Simulated scan of single mutants.
Amino acid sequence: MRVAMVIKTDEGGRWTLPHLDALRERGHEVVAVLPPGNEGRLRKALHDRGVEVVQSAFDFRFRPRPSTLRGLVGLRRQLQSIDPDVLHYHLYASALACRFAGLGWRVPKVHMVAGPLFLESPLIRAVERVLCRLDTVVIGGSEHTEARYRQLKAPRTTAIPYGVDVERFSPPSPAYRAACRAALGVGEDTFVACMVAYVYPPKRLTHRGRGIKGHDVLLKAWREFERDRPDARLVLLGGGFDAAGEEYKRRLERHKTATVDWYDSVLDVRDCYAAADVSVSPSLSENHGAALEAGAMGVPNIVSDAGALPETVDPSTGWVVPRDDVAALTAALRAAYAEFRAGTLTARAARSRTRTVARFAQGPAAGAVADVLERAVLR
């Protein structure tokens, strides 16, 4: 079959690559439709794989202008010229564009939802209750997101995680871990917590005035936690996602203490996980996020109860705390620290790896997405 995959970014969205690889391994043809541009890591990865890339006639910006309608008409013509057996799209702006461009067109449409943030807006949720009926299938990237779409009465739903590459993200050797900790200037007796996440600026429609990743919550909790634990270190890895994100990061950095190191984004985050004793995901809204990478590398997780994060741990592998609860997050850090000092955190780390591989390995997840696309065509 011929698959047209539409996504509104050429930089992010590399979690789509395993799906495309699985489809091509089965002999299917894939064409990717990306926003206009010449750079971007997703675009490069697609070119390196030999996947045909089409520059979208629509810029995925919905503004009350004639150019928006012209862009959608142009996108419809492009998609029809590709002549796909199934139209597959990720991210909400892509879903809106494909639904409008595909009105009256009987090609199967499969929407895979990367995260639940947009559904936390009452306005968008009301709109989505109507528009999701234009999708043939909605694939929730988590059980949480799939449940949200069932509540909206989407015609057909299923839950498949984006998953994690459990070969690439694997527990570090003792030598690798020691080298990564030495690079941070810490020894084996130092408790290291990490948070790996871009800094996203506050959104207008959800969590107004707050960044969704919860950096502010963690910085407040760490300030309380570190008071009688000067032998602990917090490593924050991630720059601003865009210019607004960089500005928000600068505001957050004013609350950094001497035991906090903040590094801009790097291509390989495994060094950070290799050095860490616990990973923290204090998000206000999230799918599975960085918790899967940490878990695959044998790093126990402290996660908030936002979105799908609770799916990434159980009581034997990590801790779940209420979102935006500084006291609860501080208590979880103390519990992890106590296990670190007692020497029992390593057992939790091993269980974290085992659970992540069993539930979230990328290969089986990508195969399941390919199965859904094939079934959508055969309906």
Rank of each mutant, 00 (worst) to 15 (best):
R375Q: 15
P322M: 07
T312C: 06
G12Y: 06
L284Q: 03
E143M: 09
V260C: 08
R353A: 00
Q55K: 12
Y149F: 11
L34V: 14
N38H: 15
M297G: 00
V260R: 02
R99V: 15
F100T: 08
T136S: 14
T330Q: 13
L378I: 11
V269D: 10
L237V: 10
D325P: 10
A290Q: 09
M195F: 01
P322L: 05
V130Y: 10
R348G: 03
A178I: 04
G50V: 13
T312I: 02
Y273Q: 04
A244R: 15
V107E: 08
E128D: 12
E311S: 05
W222P: 00
A327K: 13
V199L: 02
R250G: 14
P364F: 02
V269I: 12
E339D: 11
K153Y: 13
T16D: 03
F62N: 02
P64M: 10
A338P: 09
V196M: 13
G298C: 08
A358N: 09
S265P: 08
E247M: 13
G367V: 04
S173F: 00
L96Q: 05
H90A: 12
A365K: 04
S142T: 06
Q80G: 11
A294Q: 03
A308D: 04
R353G: 01
P201T: 14
I160A: 05
G50W: 07
A361W: 02
T257N: 07
G343F: 11
V269Y: 12
T344P: 08
D228Q: 10
C180P: 06
V54G: 00
F58V: 00
L184N: 05
R204D: 08
A32C: 04
D231W: 05
A276Y: 00
S121L: 14
M195C: 07
R2T: 15
G40P: 01
P64L: 14
L72P: 01
K153D: 12
Y162K: 01
A101L: 02
P171K: 10
V130H: 14
R254W: 10
Y198T: 05
D21S: 09
D261Y: 00
Q78V: 08
V53Q: 07
V357R: 12
D21E: 10
A274K: 02
H288Y: 08
I302D: 10
L292Q: 12
Q55S: 15
C194T: 03
A306Y: 01
A126L: 15
H19V: 14
T145N: 03
R14D: 06
R254Q: 14
A275G: 09
E286I: 00
L329Y: 04
Y176C: 07
